[in-house]
Amino acid sequence: MLTEENLQILYRYSYVLTCNEEDAYDLLQCAVEKYLNSSQVASCKLAYIKRIIKNQHTDNYRHDKLLDFDSYDDTIIPLDNELTELEDVIINEDMVETMLLSLSPDEREIIFYWAYEGYTAQQISDTLKQPRGTVLSRLHRIRKRLIARFGPQMDCSLEAAQ
């Protein structure tokens, strides 16, 4: 049985992926129906439904040809202090939605676990079943992209140092 709290968390996760409240609700509704209709008994239902949401979202965007698949930048060297540097980025409240839209769904998913769930790079790596290096690379790319796009509006300690 899913609780109200479970549904709110799943809705926020859907919102981060879609950046749209209505799409997030549709995605969540679809995922909950799939979960309830599946015969599989998941030991960790929240993680299982998040997986359904992610897969459904990927399918939707593939269908709409809206999903960009980023290639990895070979020049990126993941560093352990990516999380700290990302935290140093200062942002205005009204920039959040624009910022999220500027990221890919995969990047937004990482932002969800990092900012909302408060996960470390290792926990994100374990949750997404991706190598820790990949998570750090993505965080590096997120930061780079944010600075490239919002540089003049963002107060970043690294830039200040440079």
Partner: peptide
């Protein structure tokens, strides 16, 4: 205005069914 983590977290938490 605030650091990215805090502001994004508050923004996401503000979204509710």
């Amino acid at each position: 205005q605030g650091n990215l983590r805090q502001i994004v977290s508050e923004k996401i938490a503000g979204k509710s069914l």
